[in-house]
Design a binder for these strands. Sequence first.
DNA 1: CATGAATGAGCGTTCATTCAT
DNA 2: GATGAATGAACGCTCATTCAT
Lengths: 208, 208, 208, 208
Amino acid sequence: MAVGVPESATRSRAPRVDAIRNREAIIEAAAEVLAEQGTAVDVREIARRGGVGMGTLYRHFPKKEDLIRTVLRKEFLAWADSARQAAIDTEDPWLALTDFYQEALTGCARHRAIMENFALTWSVPDLEGIQELRLVVELLCARAAAAGLLRPGVATEDLLLLLVSLGQAAQLTDERHPQMWTRLLCISLDGLRAVHDPLVVPAAARRS
Amino acid sequence: MAVGVPESATRSRAPRVDAIRNREAIIEAAAEVLAEQGTAVDVREIARRGGVGMGTLYRHFPKKEDLIRTVLRKEFLAWADSARQAAIDTEDPWLALTDFYQEALTGCARHRAIMENFALTWSVPDLEGIQELRLVVELLCARAAAAGLLRPGVATEDLLLLLVSLGQAAQLTDERHPQMWTRLLCISLDGLRAVHDPLVVPAAARRS
Amino acid sequence: MAVGVPESATRSRAPRVDAIRNREAIIEAAAEVLAEQGTAVDVREIARRGGVGMGTLYRHFPKKEDLIRTVLRKEFLAWADSARQAAIDTEDPWLALTDFYQEALTGCARHRAIMENFALTWSVPDLEGIQELRLVVELLCARAAAAGLLRPGVATEDLLLLLVSLGQAAQLTDERHPQMWTRLLCISLDGLRAVHDPLVVPAAARRS
Amino acid sequence: MAVGVPESATRSRAPRVDAIRNREAIIEAAAEVLAEQGTAVDVREIARRGGVGMGTLYRHFPKKEDLIRTVLRKEFLAWADSARQAAIDTEDPWLALTDFYQEALTGCARHRAIMENFALTWSVPDLEGIQELRLVVELLCARAAAAGLLRPGVATEDLLLLLVSLGQAAQLTDERHPQMWTRLLCISLDGLRAVHDPLVVPAAARRS
DNA sequence: CATGAATGAGCGTTCATTCAT
DNA sequence: GATGAATGAACGCTCATTCAT
């Protein structure tokens, strides 16, 4: 296209540099605001914090929803990655599980939109990131079960729902009483241990 | 329209009859829609279902928030009352506790605004109703502890937060997989039993 | 509903008075602005000219489209009514036809949105008003044909399309050269007279 | 990329080659989309189809309006040229006139922006192309008049306005009922024939 | 005192135009 | 020069709240 510049193999040109900067500024700003206020934020607020105009934001993300999904996908993926790595690095299956919850909930605590989305879609994850996360939980579940540490009958689904559930607690308490959700986590994890009777169908729940 | 109160005898109070009826119609309508749609509901929808005009609604409740608080206060109170009665009627302290959760979560599952608000205010309950509910939980907690059934170190706060936390799970799963939250409840309750080590401060959480 | 006011048969209460005033102010303002600027107007401009807020406008007309249709329907109906009356009042079938065009085009000349809509929907009229208008043209057509004054082969469709076509001319010339479109009308009407050969299928058009 | 112009010999003009190519790509793309969508088209769409960036487009045409005018000027000129040639090639003055309309309207039918602009500016043609076209119509008018075929009193202005007017009809009907506008053309042309009384001033229009 | 119409700030989104690369 | 990313004023529309009747 260019007249004669021998720009060799650089197909996608240069100016992308600041476009990428902006794109990331937007994502970062969005991540912040979404963490603070959830998905109900005003798009203008994101643009403002990102230091860009509305047009720029909408160039990169044609719909508010696109931006949100992009941000959340990224965060879920990062979360899943670090969780997977941590799981691999931790030999003790039980410690791996508890560490996972500890870290995961610490993350949930500070991110409203993450929780909003996780809550809405955990059972039918439409974001790649959430699926990744699910795989990690599956891994942790399998390892703990194989080691005979996990209460029989407990499935990945249970662990995921527990995550969402405790995530709510983490979000509510982290700011003022950060130890509260840790106590709850402790209780739940103990309930997950193999010392208990196999987890049975709901009808028996009343008997505990 | 009027109920039959002799106009002359009550002079300045006569309209109250209607006012009260309206007030209650509003509250009832609000309870319905708040349960269905949460606090994001359009005020018009409430007025419509209550069969009153916007002006009437705003005369009774100058801010949307006021109405919501009034409704929730009432529902929390009713909840607390029935929970207290059930607690009293159940001799076995542990059964009382598990029944409480079972009932409470069933309620949470169907009431969006209750959960929204419970979540937001459980730690600094500004609603009389929540305080009442807290008292019930305190009672259940004390009875179970006195019977040596409750894990040492578990406090009312923990049980309340667990309620909010599982409430989230109940809300998310009740419609499609109603057994899911029951499983989680089962796990958590087992974690609360005295068979476990005393619940310790957060620092030790990592050890589980 | 009211407590005891014996408002007898007045079902719909009083306050409607100014609501109706507003509704009409909006319609009037919209008619003005639509005539001047066509359907591309900013809704805020209509609200401003009508002396009402956005909310009022949207209370009466939930979509911009609704307002436009209401205004146009009303104007087309008024147009059709006066045209029908004029047609009935004029004995000479040919004079009735020419008068109709004269009046109709005078109207078109000043109303951008009317023409926009007429142009878009004349062949599949979705507005009651346009259908009414069509009936009037049908009547005029039939009468002129019955009197042997109308060129054989000319149908209502032709007369309607001619109206849209000349409407465009009227709109373009009325302000600066108001006699221009009248000349065109004269030419077209003469082309419609029975003195000419029957109107034939398009293939012969080239022969004229 | 460069066509082969010796860089040294042309120094400051070399880039022109590309600039001109771009300019023409833009014009061609614009012609396409303007025909399809009219002047309401998004400038991005033009740049995209032309394979150039926005900056390039705006370097050549500082305002959207400038581009539109340039494109339309070109198309009107081409139209005028072919019309003039056809007029010259056709001996029979009346056939020349009818052929002109037939061709012209076929063109109008498919070109939204041409009509939009023609409509807006026919009376004060600010586009050279429209002036050219006017000359052709003048020629056709004069020849037909000289041959005694054209109704006395009909002027170039009338024929031009008729063109715009029927152009509207052509545009509206061409896609679904392509014979409709041809019928109208037939009627109008017959109205233009010398068999009728001289065309008189508007005041007499009512008499038809 | 009830009514429901009126208000207007604010939201998500688009697009002609400008400007850094 | 060419590129296409950036800008921001508008647009259609919503809804908590106020106010005339």
